[in-house]
Amino acid sequence: MLSIKNLYVRVDGSDILKDFSLVIGSGEVHAIMGPNGAGKSTLAKALSGHPDYEIVSGEVNLDGQDLLALDAAERAQLGLFMSFQYPVEIPGVNNASFLRMAYNAKRKVAGQAEVDPMEFEVILQKKLELLKIDESFLERAVNHGFSGGEKKRNEILQMAILDPKLAILDETDSGLDIDSLRIVAEAVNALRDSQNSFLLITHYQRLLNYIKPDFVHVMVDGRIVQTGPAELALVLEEKGYDGF
Protein backbone atom coordinates (compact mmCIF):
# COMPACT_ATOMS: atom_id res chain seq x y z
CA MET A 1 0.00 0.00 0.00
CA LEU A 2 2.39 2.71 1.25
CA SER A 3 6.13 2.52 1.16
CA ILE A 4 8.40 5.31 2.39
CA LYS A 5 12.13 4.88 1.83
CA ASN A 6 14.89 7.07 3.27
CA LEU A 7 12.79 10.22 3.24
CA TYR A 8 14.44 13.53 4.08
CA VAL A 9 12.19 16.59 4.45
CA ARG A 10 13.19 20.18 5.10
CA VAL A 11 10.97 22.97 6.42
CA ASP A 12 12.12 26.60 6.53
CA GLY A 13 15.70 25.49 6.00
CA SER A 14 15.70 22.92 8.83
CA ASP A 15 15.92 19.18 8.25
CA ILE A 16 12.95 17.65 10.05
CA LEU A 17 12.60 14.15 8.61
CA LYS A 18 15.92 12.36 8.47
CA ASP A 19 16.16 9.03 6.75
CA PHE A 20 12.55 8.14 7.53
CA SER A 21 11.34 4.76 6.31
CA LEU A 22 8.02 2.97 6.82
CA VAL A 23 5.94 0.33 5.06
CA ILE A 24 2.17 0.05 5.59
CA GLY A 25 0.28 -2.90 4.14
CA SER A 26 -3.36 -3.09 3.05
CA GLY A 27 -5.80 -3.32 5.92
CA GLU A 28 -3.19 -2.30 8.49
CA VAL A 29 -3.43 0.36 11.15
CA HIS A 30 -0.16 1.96 12.22
CA ALA A 31 0.30 4.45 15.01
CA ILE A 32 3.18 6.87 15.20
CA MET A 33 3.88 8.28 18.63
CA GLY A 34 6.56 10.64 19.74
CA PRO A 35 7.39 13.81 21.61
CA ASN A 36 6.73 17.33 20.36
CA GLY A 37 9.06 18.28 17.54
CA ALA A 38 9.79 14.70 16.49
CA GLY A 39 8.47 15.47 12.99
CA LYS A 40 5.14 13.64 13.14
CA SER A 41 3.04 16.42 11.62
CA THR A 42 5.80 17.15 9.11
CA LEU A 43 5.46 13.57 7.93
CA ALA A 44 1.69 14.03 7.48
CA LYS A 45 2.05 17.34 5.63
CA ALA A 46 4.90 16.11 3.43
CA LEU A 47 2.99 12.98 2.44
CA SER A 48 -0.10 14.97 1.56
CA GLY A 49 1.89 17.37 -0.61
CA HIS A 50 2.03 20.65 1.30
CA PRO A 51 4.13 23.03 -0.82
CA ASP A 52 6.08 24.39 2.19
CA TYR A 53 7.54 20.96 2.93
CA GLU A 54 10.58 20.42 0.77
CA ILE A 55 11.40 16.84 -0.14
CA VAL A 56 15.19 16.66 -0.09
CA SER A 57 15.47 13.01 -1.04
CA GLY A 58 13.77 9.67 -0.66
CA GLU A 59 10.96 7.70 -2.23
CA VAL A 60 7.26 7.40 -1.43
CA ASN A 61 4.99 4.97 -3.23
CA LEU A 62 1.26 4.57 -2.81
CA ASP A 63 -0.14 1.51 -4.54
CA GLY A 64 2.93 1.43 -6.78
CA GLN A 65 2.65 5.07 -7.84
CA ASP A 66 5.33 7.65 -7.16
CA LEU A 67 3.52 9.91 -4.73
CA LEU A 68 6.20 12.61 -4.75
CA ALA A 69 5.66 13.26 -8.46
CA LEU A 70 2.06 14.30 -7.78
CA ASP A 71 0.60 17.51 -6.38
CA ALA A 72 -1.68 17.53 -3.34
CA ALA A 73 -4.88 17.23 -5.37
CA GLU A 74 -3.56 14.31 -7.42
CA ARG A 75 -2.47 12.53 -4.25
CA ALA A 76 -5.98 12.93 -2.84
CA GLN A 77 -7.52 11.68 -6.06
CA LEU A 78 -5.24 8.65 -5.90
CA GLY A 79 -6.67 7.77 -2.50
CA LEU A 80 -4.62 9.59 0.12
CA PHE A 81 -6.44 11.48 2.85
CA MET A 82 -5.12 13.53 5.73
CA SER A 83 -7.30 14.54 8.64
CA PHE A 84 -5.91 17.94 9.64
CA GLN A 85 -4.74 18.70 13.13
CA TYR A 86 -6.24 22.16 12.63
CA PRO A 87 -8.98 21.95 9.98
CA VAL A 88 -9.35 25.19 8.02
CA GLU A 89 -12.58 27.21 8.08
CA ILE A 90 -14.02 28.01 4.65
CA PRO A 91 -16.70 30.68 5.12
CA GLY A 92 -19.39 30.92 2.47
CA VAL A 93 -18.93 27.38 1.15
CA ASN A 94 -21.73 25.00 2.04
CA ASN A 95 -20.51 21.79 3.64
CA ALA A 96 -22.81 19.47 1.68
CA SER A 97 -21.87 21.06 -1.67
CA PHE A 98 -18.20 20.91 -0.72
CA LEU A 99 -18.48 17.20 0.07
CA ARG A 100 -20.28 16.54 -3.21
CA MET A 101 -17.72 18.48 -5.24
CA ALA A 102 -14.84 16.62 -3.57
CA TYR A 103 -16.60 13.30 -4.14
CA ASN A 104 -17.22 14.11 -7.79
CA ALA A 105 -13.68 15.36 -8.37
CA LYS A 106 -12.42 11.96 -7.32
CA ARG A 107 -14.99 10.10 -9.44
CA LYS A 108 -14.13 12.18 -12.47
CA VAL A 109 -10.46 11.27 -12.25
CA ALA A 110 -11.43 7.60 -11.87
CA GLY A 111 -13.44 7.88 -15.10
CA GLN A 112 -16.77 7.50 -13.27
CA ALA A 113 -19.88 9.58 -13.86
CA GLU A 114 -20.47 12.43 -11.43
CA VAL A 115 -23.42 12.10 -9.08
CA ASP A 116 -26.14 14.75 -8.86
CA PRO A 117 -27.22 16.33 -5.56
CA MET A 118 -30.14 13.89 -5.15
CA GLU A 119 -27.97 10.80 -5.60
CA PHE A 120 -25.33 12.26 -3.35
CA GLU A 121 -27.89 12.89 -0.63
CA VAL A 122 -28.45 9.13 -0.37
CA ILE A 123 -24.72 8.43 -0.05
CA LEU A 124 -24.37 11.21 2.48
CA GLN A 125 -27.25 10.04 4.67
CA LYS A 126 -25.70 6.58 5.00
CA LYS A 127 -22.40 8.05 6.13
CA LEU A 128 -24.09 10.41 8.58
CA GLU A 129 -25.87 7.44 10.16
CA LEU A 130 -22.71 5.39 10.26
CA LEU A 131 -20.79 8.20 11.95
CA LYS A 132 -23.72 9.39 14.10
CA ILE A 133 -23.34 12.92 12.77
CA ASP A 134 -26.24 15.35 12.89
CA GLU A 135 -27.70 16.55 9.60
CA SER A 136 -27.26 20.16 10.66
CA PHE A 137 -23.56 19.71 9.79
CA LEU A 138 -24.47 19.82 6.13
CA GLU A 139 -26.19 23.19 6.12
CA ARG A 140 -23.26 25.02 7.65
CA ALA A 141 -20.24 26.46 5.88
CA VAL A 142 -17.21 24.15 5.89
CA ASN A 143 -15.85 24.13 9.47
CA HIS A 144 -16.98 27.73 9.88
CA GLY A 145 -17.87 28.39 13.51
CA PHE A 146 -17.48 24.67 14.30
CA SER A 147 -16.18 23.73 17.73
CA GLY A 148 -12.88 21.85 17.89
CA GLY A 149 -14.71 18.53 18.24
CA GLU A 150 -17.10 19.31 15.39
CA LYS A 151 -14.19 20.13 13.10
CA LYS A 152 -12.55 16.79 13.83
CA ARG A 153 -15.81 14.96 13.20
CA ASN A 154 -16.24 16.86 9.95
CA GLU A 155 -12.78 15.60 8.95
CA ILE A 156 -13.94 12.06 9.61
CA LEU A 157 -17.10 12.69 7.57
CA GLN A 158 -14.95 13.85 4.66
CA MET A 159 -12.83 10.76 5.07
CA ALA A 160 -15.92 8.54 4.98
CA ILE A 161 -17.19 10.23 1.82
CA LEU A 162 -13.85 10.13 0.01
CA ASP A 163 -13.19 6.51 1.04
CA PRO A 164 -9.38 6.74 0.85
CA LYS A 165 -6.95 3.87 0.47
CA LEU A 166 -4.72 5.44 3.08
CA ALA A 167 -5.90 7.85 5.75
CA ILE A 168 -3.46 9.80 7.87
CA LEU A 169 -5.01 11.11 11.08
CA ASP A 170 -2.79 13.90 12.35
CA GLU A 171 -3.48 14.26 16.07
CA THR A 172 -7.17 13.83 15.48
CA ASP A 173 -7.50 13.08 19.18
CA SER A 174 -5.94 16.29 20.46
CA GLY A 175 -8.46 18.79 21.75
CA LEU A 176 -11.24 16.20 21.91
CA ASP A 177 -13.15 15.46 25.06
CA ILE A 178 -13.55 11.80 25.97
CA ASP A 179 -17.01 11.43 24.37
CA SER A 180 -15.93 13.04 21.10
CA LEU A 181 -12.82 10.90 21.12
CA ARG A 182 -14.94 7.77 21.41
CA ILE A 183 -17.25 8.88 18.59
CA VAL A 184 -14.31 9.63 16.28
CA ALA A 185 -12.64 6.33 17.16
CA GLU A 186 -15.82 4.35 16.57
CA ALA A 187 -16.17 6.06 13.19
CA VAL A 188 -12.63 5.04 12.23
CA ASN A 189 -13.35 1.47 13.32
CA ALA A 190 -16.53 1.47 11.25
CA LEU A 191 -14.62 2.56 8.16
CA ARG A 192 -11.76 0.12 8.65
CA ASP A 193 -11.61 -2.79 6.21
CA SER A 194 -9.12 -5.07 4.50
CA GLN A 195 -8.69 -2.69 1.56
CA ASN A 196 -7.74 0.50 3.38
CA SER A 197 -5.01 1.51 5.79
CA PHE A 198 -4.65 4.06 8.53
CA LEU A 199 -1.74 5.99 9.91
CA LEU A 200 -2.58 7.48 13.30
CA ILE A 201 -0.34 10.23 14.58
CA THR A 202 -0.77 10.89 18.27
CA HIS A 203 0.92 12.00 21.46
CA TYR A 204 -1.23 9.93 23.71
CA GLN A 205 -2.02 6.32 24.25
CA ARG A 206 -5.69 6.95 25.01
CA LEU A 207 -6.77 7.02 21.32
CA LEU A 208 -5.29 3.54 21.00
CA ASN A 209 -7.65 2.30 23.70
CA TYR A 210 -10.36 2.69 21.10
CA ILE A 211 -8.54 2.02 17.84
CA LYS A 212 -6.26 -0.97 18.15
CA PRO A 213 -3.22 -0.54 15.88
CA ASP A 214 -1.35 -3.42 14.29
CA PHE A 215 1.93 -1.60 14.85
CA VAL A 216 3.14 1.22 17.06
CA HIS A 217 6.19 3.21 15.99
CA VAL A 218 8.15 5.56 18.18
CA MET A 219 9.37 8.61 16.29
CA VAL A 220 12.17 10.76 17.64
CA ASP A 221 14.20 13.41 15.85
CA GLY A 222 12.82 12.74 12.39
CA ARG A 223 12.95 8.96 12.23
CA ILE A 224 11.43 5.81 13.68
CA VAL A 225 13.53 4.51 16.55
CA GLN A 226 11.40 1.59 17.66
CA THR A 227 8.51 -0.48 16.32
CA GLY A 228 6.35 -2.84 18.31
CA PRO A 229 2.88 -4.27 18.77
CA ALA A 230 -0.07 -2.28 20.20
CA GLU A 231 1.23 -2.90 23.72
CA LEU A 232 4.24 -0.67 23.04
CA ALA A 233 1.92 2.30 23.48
CA LEU A 234 1.25 1.25 27.08
CA VAL A 235 4.97 1.13 27.80
CA LEU A 236 5.36 4.62 26.34
CA GLU A 237 2.47 5.90 28.43
CA GLU A 238 4.17 4.61 31.55
CA LYS A 239 7.78 5.50 30.83
CA GLY A 240 7.55 8.44 28.46
CA TYR A 241 9.93 9.18 25.60
CA ASP A 242 13.02 9.89 27.71
CA GLY A 243 14.59 6.50 27.05
CA PHE A 244 14.87 7.17 23.31
Binding site: S48, G49, H50, P51, D71, A72, A73, R75, A76, Q77, F81, M82, F84, P87, V88, E89, I90, F98, M101, A102, A105, K106, V109, Q158, L162
Partner: peptide, 14 residues
Protein backbone atom coordinates in the same frame (compact mmCIF):
# COMPACT_ATOMS: atom_id res chain seq x y z
CA UNK B 1 -7.21 27.02 2.82
CA UNK B 2 -6.02 26.43 -0.74
CA UNK B 3 -3.94 23.48 0.47
CA UNK B 4 -6.84 22.15 2.53
CA UNK B 5 -9.05 22.04 -0.56
CA UNK B 6 -6.29 20.54 -2.69
CA UNK B 7 -5.86 17.82 -0.10
CA UNK B 8 -9.53 17.00 -0.69
CA UNK B 9 -8.89 16.53 -4.40
CA UNK B 10 -9.66 20.01 -5.76
CA UNK B 11 -7.21 21.20 -8.40
CA UNK B 12 -5.34 24.41 -7.58
CA UNK B 13 -7.62 26.35 -9.90
CA UNK B 14 -10.80 24.78 -8.51
Amino acid sequence: AVFYLQSRGFSLEA
